[in-house]
Design a protein around this nucleic acid. Sequence first.
DNA 1: GTGGTCTAGACCACA
DNA 2: GTGGTCTAGACCACC
Lengths: 129, 129, 129, 129
Amino acid sequence: MYIEIEPASAVPIYLQLAQQVIEGVASGKLSPGAPLPSVRAFAADLGMNMHTVNKAYHYLEEKKMIEIVPKKGVFIHPEGIREATKEERERLLQELRPILAEAICRKLSKEELAELTGKLIEEIKEGTK
Amino acid sequence: MYIEIEPASAVPIYLQLAQQVIEGVASGKLSPGAPLPSVRAFAADLGMNMHTVNKAYHYLEEKKMIEIVPKKGVFIHPEGIREATKEERERLLQELRPILAEAICRKLSKEELAELTGKLIEEIKEGTK
Amino acid sequence: MYIEIEPASAVPIYLQLAQQVIEGVASGKLSPGAPLPSVRAFAADLGMNMHTVNKAYHYLEEKKMIEIVPKKGVFIHPEGIREATKEERERLLQELRPILAEAICRKLSKEELAELTGKLIEEIKEGTK
Amino acid sequence: MYIEIEPASAVPIYLQLAQQVIEGVASGKLSPGAPLPSVRAFAADLGMNMHTVNKAYHYLEEKKMIEIVPKKGVFIHPEGIREATKEERERLLQELRPILAEAICRKLSKEELAELTGKLIEEIKEGTK
DNA sequence: GTGGTCTAGACCACA
DNA sequence: GTGGTCTAGACCACC
């Protein structure tokens, strides 16, 4: 797992971290049950504060992507990531919406978009950064 | 143009407003050169602060999607929205990335995703909310 | 709303605070949509840290008992507290279980327990502390 | 006695163990004077650390629910579990309070609650897990 | 060693 | 003025 954080980004550090863990799962680099570093170790590793890592972990736990076992450690959810609920699909679509709207304004055709997202999906699955 | 704002959302109000203007353009409801309400009128209409509408407008101006003509008014960019630059395409992909990654974790296949985004694109183009 | 915190208690401060807000709702003192103090004001009021109040608020938000509107304030969930899902009922029962088990060991009969809980419920509903 | 531990629970393992012993007593499966496994044997049996079992035993001893006889073994308190003192009743009520408050918020009526707790009590007494 | 909790103080964007 | 984020450093219970 290589994690790259851009401190200057508008997206909060804890979110960047969480998203990269999610990418790790999507690419298969992180399998169900796999341990994640302790909050302290990860924080030291990434040069950030313990609480920031903690926040990322709790964010992921809420999404049921990881399991935080008090005093034991943190693990990719051992029962596997569950399929999206109707609510979650709806949320993902809502997040997608403004991005697609802007792309359409910018004259990207449906086909171009399909190709771009297709490539992006492959990239994520292969774990290419 | 029906604008719907969710005040409780984590997305800032000014951004929600800007995104809905963009959707208006994407759907063709707002054509190049079309006038937008004055800051004052829009704010009163939507029950929000003038500063908020102003911020949305300047956000859109920076993206070159609208033109603010002092003393005259605000218009959808009359020369049409220009195609995405390389940087903008890159940014759109970066925004897409975490959403797709989560979708993959949630076991959405490439085909399902393509179908969903396809539908969403149609929805936006038709201006269906 | 009178809030009383026991710093020496084994139950974390943020939880005590959250529970007392819940009691406020149960007693009807806090109605749907009612505003709660800002994190800073509440913290100053209660002599605790802003982050502790924040944690209590986010705990309650997760339970959908309050709504945190960024930059606006915090409110008792305006649509009212929704009924317990099957999962939540199950959790409540699991929490009840060890307490009842101990009570049974201590020779409290079913009738005594029913009477005690009945009284306690009335007490909570009336907002008697 | 079947003991089931959820390692991922927020409830400490030693407490889970102690609570299940209490349930054993409540259901009558463990009668006054009945022997409990040695710390070592229990730990091996449950795949947990000796310290953890030890802590559970001392927790139960403090509650006077078991008796630890050095070099002899551990037994359910032979003189029977004594009735709850006033303090203990008070403590049980205090533990009950937040659970009931949440249930009230969730629109569970007094009658529903009475029925649910009644069922739960029967379940515990019968030793149904 | 782990995560959980709490405090303190800071800066930021938003409204 | 609001909540959001981040840092820093501390103590605790549990394993």
